[in-house]
Amino acid sequence: MSKEWDILLPKQIDRSGPESLTDFAQCTRITEYERTDDALADIDQYDAIIVRTADLSAEVLARAERLKVIAKHGTGLDNIDIEAASRHGIVVCNTPGVNARSVAEQTIALLFGLRRNLHTADRHVRNGGWDRAAFVGRELQGDTLGLMGFGAIARETAAIAQGVGLEITIYDPHHADSKVPAGIERVDSLTELCAQSDAVSLHAPLTPETRHAIGAEQLNALGSDGVIINTARGGIIDESALVDALDEGLVGGAGLDNFEQEPPGADNPLYDYDRVLLTPHLGGVTENALERMSRRAADNVRTVYHGALPESTVNREDLDQEVLQ
């Protein structure tokens, strides 16, 4: 007997989510088609799609006659024409917050990595070196970590940082005092945050207000022993100011998971510095976060199957409610 719903799955997804839907759905991977376009040409066969990066344009959605829900695996919705989805009564929802712990741990990993020279020491040993004095590190305990922004990821980062003995200071003009836990200091400017901290980690979205918010003035305030960590968005740091500060020894180092341009290219000037630790936007890329995304996206599909709207629905106001019936 055929299942009631047909669901299209992305190329890569942890199996736990799809497996949880087998009572009412049969799932087809996009890779079972020769090309993504072939799969999207067949979109009218599907009741739901769990989507990562496939482009769901107005043209594709116009043919999605049976489609009831687009469950984004992740947060960003740039690849989905939400207006077109709303016109066709398709629920669009996502999985916000599932990678907060992963990003927070990446932040702490970059901080430890920089302070203990893990990447350069590893390179040194592999090249046959053993110059221990060249890699003398610095303990984190007792240092102050400054957090720019105090949303979900920053709060997870603060909890871990306190757990390993760091003091926390925050700068977040959009955050109410009442929501700041006891034991966390608060300052009124980003430069002040940098001046008071041994390390500063960025946890803000990229907006006109935050673009290049970390420039020469903030890096100077952080100082020659200070390090900057970015697991948020490239562009918050003025990279050319950072390169200048590294060049002049005005800042101690940088742990960067995000860049103004991604990929940052074959000959980025940041590569000239051992005092930077670079990762390719891996903050949220863990098995654990991928499993949570898979499960939450699948849960969202089930919620729509049961005739309700997922909590993370982004086009709630624009939906023609009858279509849900």
């Binding site: 890569q12 712990r101 992963s102 741990e105 990446q106 702490i108 990993a109 970059l110 430890f112 990595g113 893990l118 990447h119 590893d122 390179r123 991604e262 990929p263 940052p264 290219g265 074959a266 000959d267 590569y271 630790l277 670079l278 990762t279 390719p280 936007h281 891996l282 890329v285 863990t286 098995e287 654990n288 976060a289 991928l290």
Partner: peptide, 30 residues
């Protein structure tokens, strides 16, 4: 943390001009 998040190999990869994120999928400690 370094081993779980592949920070040394990821750093080498970025410096060599690479951006293959899925290769460096990590694992949380929590």
């Amino acid at each position: 943390l370094g081993v779980r998040r592949h920070i040394h190999t990821a750093d080498k990869h970025v410096r060599a001009g690479g951006w293959d994120r899925a290769t460096y999928t990590g694992r949380e400690l929590t």
